[in-house]
Amino acid sequence: MKACYIHSAVSISAQNTFETDLNLSESNPITSKKANANHPQYKTYIAPGALRRMATGVKMGVTAGKKALEKANITNPDAILTGTGMGCIEDTENFLNALIANDEAYLTPTSFIQSTHNTVGAQIALALQCNAYNNTYVHGALSFESALLDGQLLIKNDDSRSVLVGGIDELGKEFIDYTLLVEDKKHGVQVPFSEGASFFVLSSEKQEKAIQLNDIKTFSNITEQEVPTVLNEFLAENNYKPKDIDAVICGNNGSVYDSYYSKARAIFPITTSQLHYKHLFGEYFTASAMALYLGVYILKNQQIYDTLIIGDNSKNSIKTILLYNQFNGRDHSFILLSL
């Protein structure tokens, strides 16, 4: 089994994470219920002919994917893997609205063609003329993790030397408003709903200061009471104890289901830094890809921004990070990173 390293990480998010290196000391607090991504100049990365047909998620995904490859000095990866919870919801809405408005007649092809969930992976492959393995995972809040797990297996089994993996979700225009309407105002998600695309190049090649993707484990359902046991087992499988983890990044979104994170945090000693991020980046099905971007950034730069810290404990040396995400008490994922 080969080790799996992360050679590059690129993210387009509600904060300015793309154009410059991450600077969360000046992050903009999100006050609205919906937070659009901070969009870069897509023209630099996508040909105008292709760009005019692309909806937000496709633009974000193709741009973040291309930049991740560029940063890792890879022109053609051995696999392209994407994860998305809602897929290309913007074009889906356009297509379905046209279907209703025109009484199922006069349907135009563009929004239909680009409404499928695998559009981002396909557009990246088309742009690169890459015929390698290409797969898209759609599993709610485990969509990105499923793609990451596939990528990690390809690297570990030596089936691929470099794999592009990403998580993408766009806000869309209408469906998100219905989601907000049915969301429990008191017990539901308290951070804004948002969008983003985070891409990574996984590789078997160990570089200087390489960040290792040690392990990923996912669960569709676990109870709150099972969290400490499951987490301890996950760490033990990787020869770690809770005291070995320098920082834990949890996907707190203010809902009643944050109690799962409290159970997880309780197993770690006071010396472990406790971080959260969705108050700055919002909630979406592939927000955990944003957490992985933050984990990679922290390990690489040995810097934790105060805006991410819960409490006041921040370690000076960070060598191991655990990511824990779940949505509404379902779709749990644990990701372990180390330097």
């Binding site: 047909r53 349907l107 135009t108 092809p109």
Partner: peptide, 17 residues
């Protein structure tokens, strides 16, 4: 204008509609 075959389909739907 540099249009392509997908645009041609869009134009055909526009003519009909």
């Amino acid at each position: 204008l540099g249009l392509d075959s997908i645009d041609a389909l869009e134009l055909m739907v526009m003519l009909d509609k």
